[in-house]
């Protein structure tokens, strides 16, 4: 049963996109943790999380973003989130996550915000 999947896709300006698919709960968070850890190990800190196919998130999933954002920003990078469905955005919003994270409608916009100084 493949309930959650992360696909890592490199794009321009040294940016890496993590495409999330399925549901992110207490059972599937290790998959996303591994993907972020892989990025940190490879010193890739310019990250976009594309949530287009993310169908569900609970607080366990939100916790993964909290676990990695500090390290990523300490290395002058960022985790930007894009393409959320309203259902998923509502949960991020309910807890005030837009205060801490750059959440934009489209991946292109997130990439643009990183600028060119790779």
């Amino acid at each position: 049963m493949s309930e959650f999947k992360v696909t890592i896709r490199p794009r321009d300006n040294n940016i890496h996109v993590l495409e999330l698919k399925g549901y992110l709960d207490a059972h599937t968070t290790p998959v996303l943790e591994d993907a972020f850890q892989q990025m940190l190990n490879e010193k890739k800190y310019r990250l976009i999380v594309n949530c287009r196919e993310l169908t569900y998130i609970s607080s366990a999933g939100l916790g993964v973003f909290m676990a990695f954002i500090e390290d990523v920003r300490a290395n002058t990078g960022d985790i930007k989130l894009s393409d959320m469905t309203p259902k998923v955005f509502n949960i991020f919003d309910l807890l005030g996550f837009p205060m801490l994270y750059d959440i934009v409608p489209a991946e292109e916009e997130a990439a643009h915000k990183f600028g060119n100084n790779a």
Partner: peptide, 9 residues
């Protein structure tokens, strides 16, 4: 911080 958001939700 991390965790502790479940009850809050």
């Amino acid at each position: 911080r991390r965790g502790g958001l479940g009850v809050f939700l």
